[in-house]
């Protein structure tokens, strides 16, 4: 099967300039990254601030061009200017700041913005907008001003805008970072449903480890390189490496590690509190106490 994303030896460098405009140093934001993503997968890219994860994301949407290497989206090279719209249509992107990515003054018109740019005829536009808003549960708010929406609703509106382009892949570039816990949950729930039900590829870029539990595969980035990849269970068991990358384990895994250090022989690759509880029950520790 054709890969939806194929990155080969990607390097991205940018020049940091001093106040006179001379190049002070060359920064390698992304350093020889290789990765492949299957259609319909739920993939997470984890990394602390400055690990290059956002730079990587911008390559997937042809907002940045590789310094070296190639990025293929659904088999199309991002450096091919003729395929630019096609690539951006295939891989839609949700950005970090909810306010700065809404273009129109009415929710439904903002959702229509992408397909309008693609020249979708008006009769089809209405259905697309309708379906997309239903899919993210925002249909009731369609006539509102985006300023009246909560952060989580704004991000869901942005997701609807991508669905309306009939994208095969949604990239969330730290899209939950500015949201409150409720909004974060709503957005994650929405993309998870789209992944499970519509088989849309989701690439979730984040530094919150709690968000990646549901992912099929995780890539961990540090200083522009992918240092670790695998299933959540495989990744969560590499505590030292994760801490070196500036990431903190979710609560359940942290407690498990703590218990292990105290001499209890528990598994440390637990993903949720529920799993931890089962694990503890399994080894004879119950709510009553140790």
């Amino acid at each position: 099967m054709k890969k939806i994303v194929e990155i080969k030896n990607l390097v991205h460098e940018y020049a940091r300039r001093d106040s006179e405009g001379n190049v002070a140093e060359i920064v390698r934001a992304v350093d020889s990254v290789n990765l492949e993503i299957e259609p319909g997968a739920f993939v997470a890219v984890l990394g602390a601030n400055g690990s290059g994860k956002s730079t990587l994301a911008k390559h997937l949407n042809a907002l940045l061009m590789p310094t070296e290497g190639t990025v293929l989206i659904d088999g199309k090279n991002t450096e091919d200017r003729e395929k630019l719209l096609d690539i951006r249509k295939t891989a839609g992107m949700v950005f970090q700041n909810p306010d700065n990515q809404i273009v129109a003054n009415v929710v439904e018109e903002d959702v229509a913005f992408g397909p309008e740019n693609l020249g979708v005829p008006t009769e089809k536009l209405e259905k697309r907008v309708h379906d997309s808003l239903k899919a993210v549960d925002l249909f009731e708010e369609r006539k509102k001003s985006p300023n009246r929406l909560s952060g989580g609703q704004k991000q869901r509106a942005a997701i609807a805008g991508i669905l309306a382009m009939r994208s095969k892949c949604i990239i969330l570039d730290e899209a939950t970072a500015m949201l409150d816990p409720v909004g974060r949950k709503q957005v994650l729930q929405a993309v998870l449903e789209l992944n499970r039900e519509e088989h849309i590829t989701v690439i979730l870029i984040t530094h919150f480890m709690e968000e990646v539990i549901e992912a099929d595969q995780i890539f961990v980035m540090k200083q522009g390189e992918v240092v670790l990849s695998g299933t959540p269970r495989q990744v969560f068991s590499r505590k030292e490496l994760l801490e070196e990358c500036g990431l903190t384990l979710p609560d359940a895994a942290r407690i498990a590690w703590g218990l292990k250090l105290k001499g209890l022989s528990v598994r440390t690759d637990v993903l949720s509190m529920q799993e931890l509880e089962e694990e503890l029950n399994g080894i004879g520790v119950s709510h009553g106490g140790v």
């Binding site: 907002l63 839609g92 913005f113 992408g114 382009m165």
Partner: peptide, 11 residues
Amino acid sequence: DLADAMDARCY
């Protein structure tokens, strides 16, 4: 940011 978002949505 907005310019990036508009680009990303094929404007």
